[in-house]
């Protein structure tokens, strides 16, 4: 553990282990439904877990960005819910009307990622503004790819958040091409808006956790947004960090090897159960899925008439009958 690090609580470490194991299985396991690529970065689990999660609609708000199970799990989604979205099931929160990233559960503080890059920074800026207006101890976290900073929309959202000192944390995923621009680009953007900036790399979990937790504290104290550059992983095993954390948990957080294995088994059982359950769940039924979401009644045949032209008129499928009836 780093010298400047205060150890995470044992409870947090156990949660992180559980969610990390599940995220790993969901992202890399066989038999995943759908053809949507699942992006996962174990660091996102840690960052999301550093926010204040609640299931009563009073906690922080998180927009996971890519189709990543990590932040969703950290904000209380279950593997089954995640897989329902991925599998476009009628039981999915959006009833298969929209893609996996659209998963929203405001009670748990999850909001779906929709629109082109930058849109969700705008939306989360407004949500954060609402927290500040009400004096609530809440903050918003949004994951965006660095490419979002190339859009005007992202800058409009960032500018608005900065001007309003909104409690917003924006994690910019520095994909490899973006990383060539360097974290200096993020620093320059942050300076331009007068907001704080930080960078996280393949650092130990506690440091990632503290970086976001610290940004959150600043945010809810009215000190405005923070931009966090999430640097690319190395070329090696993307889960090396996870494995390192398991080792640290064993070594420093007082979690025994027996407990770690029990947590891993529980996580695995949860994912297995979700996969089995998912296979038995129905596909979306068009009428049930679409009609409640339509603003208007769905037109019925014949053609789009909804009112017969005269009392007693019955459609036969022959348009000429209309004239006869008249």
């Amino acid at each position: 553990m780093h010298g400047d690090a205060s150890p995470l609580s044992r409870e947090v470490v156990r949660d992180l282990l559980y969610q990390g194991f599940q995220a790993r299985l969901l992202a890399g396991g066989a038999g995943m439904p759908g053809d949507t690529p699942v992006s996962v970065d174990i660091r996102t689990v840690v960052m999301a877990r550093a926010m204040r999660h609640s299931s009563d609609g009073k906690g922080d708000l998180c927009c996971p960005g890519h189709l990543s199970p990590g932040p969703m799990l950290a904000f209380g989604a279950t593997p089954l819910e995640f897989l329902r979205q991925l599998g476009r099931k009628g039981t999915a929160p959006a009833a298969a009307r929209s893609g996996g990233r659209s998963w929203t559960d405001q009670r748990r503080g999850l909001i779906g990622w929709d629109g082109p890059p930058g849109t969700m920074t705008q939306v989360l800026a407004g949500a954060a503004l609402a927290f500040a207006q009400r004096g609530q101890d809440r903050a918003a976290l949004v994951f965006e790819e660095f490419v979002a900073t190339e859009t005007g929309g992202w800058h409009e959202g960032m500018n608005f958040a900065a001007a309003q000192s909104a409690p917003l944390i924006v994690v910019l995923d520095m994909t490899q091409p973006a990383d060539r621009a360097g974290t200096g680009a993020v620093d320059a953007i942050a300076r331009g808006y007068g907001v704080s900036a930080a960078a996280v790399a393949e650092e130990p979990y506690p440091r990632l956790f503290r970086t976001v937790a610290s940004a959150r504290r600043r945010a809810v104290r009215g000190r405005g947004p923070t931009l966090i550059a999430m640097l690319p992983r190395g070329e090696g095993d993307p889960w090396a960090l996870h494995d390192a954390f398991v080792a640290r948990a064993l070594d420093e957080a007082g979690v025994s090897d027996v407990e770690v294995r029990a947590i891993e088994r529980a996580a695995s059982a949860g994912v297995d159960h979700a996969l089995n359950r998912l296979a038995r769940e129905p596909e979306a039924e068009p009428h049930d899925a679409l009609v409640p979401a339509c603003a208007h009644e769905v037109p019925q045949p014949p053609w789009t008439r909804r009112v017969p032209p005269e009392p007693g008129w019955r459609a036969t499928g022959d348009p000429r009958e209309l004239h006869d009836a008249r």
């Binding site: 705008q122 800026a125 407004g126 609402a130 929309g153 959202g157 608005f160």
Partner: peptide, 11 residues
């Protein structure tokens, strides 16, 4: 930007 932010506040 501010219409998007309004959406967030409405959420």
């Amino acid at each position: 930007g501010f219409t998007g932010a309004a959406a967030g506040a409405a959420h």
